[in-house]
Design a binder for these strands. Structure first.
Length: 261
DNA sequence: ATGCCGTGTGAAACACGA
């Protein structure tokens, strides 16, 4: 089974590109982040016309997540147990959705950005990651052999090599120790990051500003974290860097993993 | 060339991203 994760930065602006990606990439499941659309605005036809079932969750112009599958899509769940909210009303944001696809619990996650180290959004990000860890731990405690994968934009660069120049990130989010500790804690809960070993030195995101892509100044912040039972089935992984090229590209590239049946 | 920020809202300027 081939599973991809991709922060598309607007599903409406990227509808044609997403369709073209499905046509050429032969993915069975696509986890999508940053829809930037509410449910009523979601372009179902992109997926319907290609034989993909799709579950999506969008509340407004921010965030938004979806899962498309051509190998079955059942028991879609919005959010996760204990997911923190944000804002004055502490409302849940559209940052998590999961579904059962061919026996695998696939999560599509858009981890909060954090904004600045002293911003309330940073504390929100850390709490969000910690509650996610608890939810995963509970899921694996119930079934240690569960096949599950956390796909998404984690907004954390776990290692120094995951940014082009650490000097550019002094005092910045994404590389701070608490964020990296939170990411590691997710792994310690019983998950393995399965893309890095197959894509050494690669990035998944390049800022639109400052010519980051042609300068090869990117970040590795998009991952697939698989449970042990699924991680042992990984055959290959790649990052579709071509997708970042040209007019109308998302600032993130798709991250694709092949799992043996 | 991969090329100097993009998307949504709403109709100018701002929120948000990382």
């Amino acid at each position: 089974m081939r599973i991809a994760t991709w922060n598309v930065n607007s599903i409406r602006a990227r509808a044609e590109r997403v369709g073209a990606f499905l046509d050429r990439s032969d993915v069975d499941v696509l986890a999508i982040q940053e829809l930037k659309a509410k449910d009523s605005q979601f372009p179902r036809e992109v997926f319907d016309s290609r034989g993909y079932e799709v579950a999506f969750h969008g509340l407004n112009q921010w965030n938004g997540v979806a899962i498309a599958s051509r190998v079955g899509l059942a028991d879609a769940r919005i959010g996760f147990e204990g997911m923190p909210g944000w804002g004055e009303d502490d409302a849940a944001e559209a940052r998590a959705i999961s579904a059962l696809c061919a026996g695998v619990r696939v999560h599509s996650l858009y981890v909060p950005n954090g904004r600045e180290l002293d911003h309330p959004h940073y504390a929100y990000k850390l709490a969000w990651l910690d509650r996610l860890r608890e939810a995963v731990a509970a899921e694996l405690a119930a079934d240690a052999a569960a096949r599950l994968v956390l796909c998404g934009d984690f907004n954390v660069a776990p290692r120094d090599e995951d940014v082009w120049d650490m000097a550019e990130f002094e005092g910045a989010t994404h590389v701070s120790q608490p964020e990296r500790d939170a990411f590691q804690a997710l792994l310690d809960a019983g998950l393995a990051e399965v893309t890095r070993a197959h894509t050494p030195g690669a990035y998944t995101f390049w800022d639109y500003q400052q010519l980051r892509f042609p300068k090869k100044q990117g970040m590795r912040i998009d991952f697939q974290l698989a449970s042990r039972a699924l991680a042992e089935r990984v055959a290959d992984a790649r990052i579709d860097r071509e997708e970042r090229k040209g007019k109308g590209a998302s600032d993130h590239a798709p991250v694709i993993v092949d799992y043996a049946d």
